[in-house]
Amino acid sequence: MVSQHAGQAETTDADSSALALKILVAGGFGVGKTTLVGAVSEIRPLRTEELLSEAGLLVDDTGGVDRKVTTTVAMDFGRITIRSGLSLYLFGTPGQDRFWFLWDELSQGALGAVVLADTRRLADCFPAVDYFEHRHIPFVVAVNCFTGARRHEEREVLRALDLDAGTPVVLCDARDRASGKEVLIRLVEYAGRMHTARLLDSVR
């Protein structure tokens, strides 16, 4: 095994011209996150392992201190190559509340987030909305129009979710590539506006 010291050069500038941007796809259980990531990118499962205590799961008596029992959590992961050296990475987070701790890492340095909502159970996306609002991460709400739940007015959703004015609400079909692309475009546009506004604020 390799020695553990002498590692100041932990992070060097590998390829300073290459740029990677991160977008999160969040929302309640079964709302269409995996479907959306799959519609716009080549989707792959990504495994991350978490200590059971962190995951808020019961930890049975594990005996020795050096014994680390972990569980794997699967996330959706997709890449969209814009051009060589510029890629968009999508991460779909597990819908269950007990995996929220994963988000803290995921949301670090994220360009923005898509919060998927189902109008039949709008409340399911409240935690995601709260999360991104508190961290000032730009997000759009994408209303996944499952059959039978169509034509919910965007303004109604805006009001029901008590969103800040200006937060985009987009109707979408998570299965449809063009529709998914539109959601991402709206997010990137919005994130751009937010960043510009913040820059202006900081020089004022």
């Binding site: 095994m1 932990e10 972990t70 269950q96 995921l106």
Partner: peptide, 30 residues
């Protein structure tokens, strides 16, 4: 959501973080 219990650190000699001190590599670090 949660997979089977695994002990993936067998592969890394029991280490749970990268050897060099500092922040773990970001998921989108290149």
């Amino acid at each position: 959501e949660a997979g089977p219990l695994v002990r993936p650190y067998a592969m890394t000699g029991g280490r749970t973080r990268p050897a060099p001190a500092g922040v773990p590599f970001d998921l989108i670090a290149l």
